[in-house]
Simulated assay, not measured.
Amino acid sequence: MAGSETHYTLPRPAFDKPVKLLIVVAPYYRDIADDLIAGAKAEIEAVGGSWDLVEVPGALEVPTAVAMADRMSNFDGYVALGCVIRGETTHYDTVCNDSSRALQLLGLQGLCIGNGILTVENRDQAVVRADPDAQNKGGGAAAAALHLVALGRKWGGQSKGVGFRPATESYRLAGGDDGNTIA
């Protein structure tokens, strides 16, 4: 049974400057969302961090809210929380896949995101995973975001931009050997 397995957990990162995360939650299942939020808040506060909380209608809106916050605010990272329980239609697959894919794409663009959107077969699975005294997936999502923030700070934050550094100080334009070089 998955609930009885043990997993290695990284030690909490330490921060020399304050860290602030945005918790974005879809509270469709209010009691489960409340447990996820409690776990995330506790993990953030355990490293001396601060947090803000926003609610959105559903799991599909979580990535949009994260992207908006990244454009319009100054958070160091994001914690995505919610719960999708399998129903009788394929809507479950769409919501699970699309919300996860969107969060992953935002992460690949350089955002520090912990994904705590539960995707479960039934309510009992969700309750165990959300419970801060059991699997604490909200705390795990916050820990993931915090580790990414720490890694970003270790490597110099976003001051260098995203992508590869050129091998030289000049760039050759694609498509020709006609001396089109930008210095």
Rank of each mutant, 00 (worst) to 15 (best):
L151W: 00
Y171N: 08
S100Q: 06
A142W: 02
E88A: 13
D52C: 05
V149S: 03
W155F: 13
W155K: 00
V66A: 05
V54D: 11
L111R: 03
T94G: 02
V47L: 08
A42M: 10
N115P: 12
A59F: 04
D34N: 13
R30V: 12
D76V: 00
V66P: 02
G3H: 15
C112P: 00
A142N: 03
A67C: 05
A134I: 02
K160A: 14
D35G: 11
G114T: 06
G82T: 02
Q109L: 06
N136T: 04
R101T: 10
S100N: 15
A142C: 00
G139E: 03
E5I: 08
A142I: 02
L36M: 09
T89L: 04
L105N: 12
A126Q: 10
G48F: 11
G48K: 08
C96N: 09
T94S: 09
A59D: 11
A40H: 10
Y171S: 14
S100W: 06
V162W: 14
G163S: 01
V62S: 04
L53Q: 04
A183R: 12
L22D: 09
A134K: 11
G179F: 14
T181Q: 14
L118M: 09
Y78I: 02
A145W: 00
K154I: 00
L81E: 01
G140N: 07
N122D: 13
S4K: 13
D177K: 15
D31T: 13
V24R: 03
S73C: 07
A102I: 11
W51K: 08
I182V: 06
G39R: 07
F15M: 06
H91Q: 05
A174D: 15
D124V: 11
I23D: 02
L106P: 03
R71N: 10
Q125L: 10
N122K: 09
T168N: 15
D76A: 00
L103R: 01
A142V: 00
G82N: 01
R172K: 15
A42G: 09
L60Y: 13
A102T: 09
H147N: 05
P57A: 07
G48Y: 11
F164R: 15
G82L: 03
C83V: 06
D98V: 15
D124Y: 13
A102R: 03
L53T: 11
